[in-house]
């Protein structure tokens, strides 16, 4: 029944990864007597990512970006809704098919200092999965591949690195190894969760460039999660940006279009916060008088549009009716006012 639905103006089969009404609830204990409460970290999110696309997911901390990323990777089970990989629900795959998906969807976690086992040499971070997925025929071939991977992420000569412990690497070098680790199984889809936010500004560009290059060379689809619109714009310059707010995706579109002409009030507010080199755009862009700076708690569900408590343009409908993502021009926006 879903088969023929058209989302984003395209037929589903064109998507590599797709979310349909994807929801994740967490049980948390609150208050004096540890009563149980449910929070919706991801709230009926639907969107798709095309093969080879480079997309950035942007939102404030705690809005559910990592949860959405981990749902797409099949690392946690959704409370409801579906994740489709090449049009097939990943939680309905056979064991063998799931293993194939598992290999094809990788994560680059946020903290490079934590993404490598401190008790193991780099070889142990690269070789076991190559053997497990039979990408190499034997140990020596796998080791050769691991050396190539290190070379590819700019650690040369690789022979100097492969038998080191992570403690003997710098933060930037660690992040390179982590990237090598993620691409070691030749995945089609990579979620990079705040992959550069722990790094120095000078290193960020290098790593972003490298991921970009890998994406193009290996035809890997990237979803970069970040709270920094500037990073998103830099990474997804030829791709797309998705804006997330309290568990909802509120706007998706081509990066340059979103930057030049944000439609959702929340996107406007986020954009107002980043510096722009172009004075013409800067003059055109007005700052948004938000009603409140604080992000509301997920513990109290908000009716209607979740942004209405802070939105300066909110009308009565915004408090009552939840806006769906609608196609506006070339863009998807969830706002009653567009």
């Amino acid at each position: 029944m879903w088969k023929d639905r058209v989302i984003g103006g395209e037929i589903i089969s064109e998507y590599l990864m797709e979310a349909r009404k994807l929801t994740k609830e967490f049980e948390v204990s609150v208050g004096m007597f540890k009563s149980r409460a449910k929070i919706r970290a991801v709230d009926e999110v639907s969107f798709g990512i095309k093969e080879g696309e480079q997309i950035a997911l942007v939102g404030e901390s705690g809005c559910g970006k990592s949860t959405l990323g981990r749902l797409l990777l099949g690392l946690i089970k959704p409370s409801s809704g579906q994740i489709l990989y090449k049009g097939r629900n990943i939680w309905r795959l056979s064991r063998k098919e799931f293993e194939e998906f598992r290999r094809n969807a990788q994560i680059i976690p946020q903290n490079p200092y934590d993404a490598l086992n401190p008790t193991k040499k780099l070889s142990a971070a690269l070789i076991p999965q190559i053997l497990r997925h039979k990408i190499a025929k034997g140990r020596s071939e796998a080791r050769k591949m691991a050396l190539d991977l290190l070379e590819m992420v700019g650690l040369s000569p690789p022979e100097d690195f492969i038998d080191r412990y992570p403690s003997r690497l710098s933060g930037g070098q660690m992040q390179r190894v982590v990237i090598a680790r993620a691409i070691s199984v030749k995945p089609q889809f990579i979620v990079a969760d705040e992959a550069v936010s722990m790094l120095d500004a000078s290193l960020r560009v290098e790593i972003l460039d490298m991921m970009h290059k890998i994406g193009e060379e290996l035809k890997t689809t990237f979803l970069l999660i970040t709270h920094d619109l500037g990073v998103a714009r830099y990474f997804a310059k030829n791709g797309k940006i998705a804006i997330m707010y309290l568990g909802d995706i509120v706007e998706i579109g081509e990066t340059e279009e979103i930057i030049r002409n944000p439609l959702h009030p929340y996107t406007k507010a986020l954009l107002a916060a980043i510096p722009v080199p172009d004075p013409k755009i800067a003059r055109e862009r007005k700052s948004i008088p938000l009603k409140s700076i604080d992000v509301p708690s997920l513990l109290k569900p908000i009716s209607g549009c979740k942004f209405h408590t802070r939105c300066p343009y909110a009308i009565e409908d915004c408090e009552k009716i939840k806006p769906e993502l609608r196609l506006v021009g070339n863009r998807w926006v969830a706002c009653h006012l567009t």
């Binding site: 948390v28 204990s29 609150v30 208050g31 004096m32 007597f33 540890k34």
Partner: peptide
Amino acid sequence: LDPRVRIER
């Protein structure tokens, strides 16, 4: 004695 036991997030 310890409020954290009661008010836990």
